[in-house]
Amino acid sequence: MTMTLPTLASRRLPLAMASEQRATLRRLPLAREFDQRLADAGLAPMRPTRIEVMQVNVGRVCNQTCRHCHVDAGPDRREVMSRDTMQLCLDALAKSDIGTVDVTGGAPEMNPHFRWFVREVRALGRHVMDRCNLTILETPSHRDLPAFFAEHNVEVVCSLPHYLGARTDRQRGDGVYETSIRALKRLNALGYGSGVAGRRLVLVANPVGAFTISDQGLMEAEFRKALGERHGVVFDQLYCLTNMPISRYLEWLVESKNLAPYMEALANAFNPAAAAGAMCRNTVSVGWDGALYDCDFNQMLDMPVAQGAPRHVRDFDLAALTARAIETDRHCFGCTAGEGSSCGGATA
């Protein structure tokens, strides 16, 4: 039975507000603050090393409403990046040497200008990663997307929490696993996942519950064996992500009474090496309305880039953004626990 719920926004819950989410985290008794940990590791204030990735969140609309979603995405959301704002992203890219555009959402493919944007980014000679939930590829109006991805050498980074169906469905909704496997097979049929250039297929696993993954390499081996034997599915790499205590996952943590122990465990597992590799150090994140953030998580918590740095993509200035200090708070413990977690998986 599905355990997914409608978006927090549609249920008009206080926790739908970023301010309430941050206040909920603030109320916890934690032995040490994130910034203190950073200072102890000689990393405060956190600053970018070099901005190599522009992560563009093209909207919060999604065909799913996963239980752990940090975006509070769902079919009822109305935030969608306009073509004008996408053009501003392209202008910013054109005047920088940022090599990778990481397109995320929601289900980014549901943005009506998605394909245009991907083509334009590719025309600028930049690498495109699409953060895909897989099931969208099986909907009638998006069935041709795998071929589109292949035509434009788009790297597909897709979510599959677990290689066991029941686990995946519990987090993402009934039938999601089966549909995801069908989509993966179609991607495989186009050469995705077999190590061929321009057909890179990455799976993203995340814990189904209030714990973290301690060994990305081991997980990758388990996934490879299970998906290969059960479904003949192949992939290039597996990233393990830690669930961030934001939006719907935060709601689940509160309801299941896991919030305090989960945050304590993340804080205790603070790893300076993981912090040094945090993705905000090489990424800048653009919101659906063009606002700039240090990462997609800060974006969802309404924490824009620091005062003094350009705050909208129309004012994009790579040097000024590279010089900024990154805004951090307690949720950042999610990126720095154990092996670390980022949009590129483990960081330490």
């Binding site: 677990h162 066991l164 029941a166 686990r167 696993a205 814990p207 189904v208 519950g209 714990f211 973290t212 993954i213 301690s214 060994d215 081991l218 997980m219 388990e222 996934f223």
Partner: peptide, 11 residues
């Protein structure tokens, strides 16, 4: 907990 942390489940 250790089993969960390497992706093993109740199954």
């Amino acid at each position: 907990a250790q089993a969960q942390s390497i992706g093993l489940t109740m199954e």
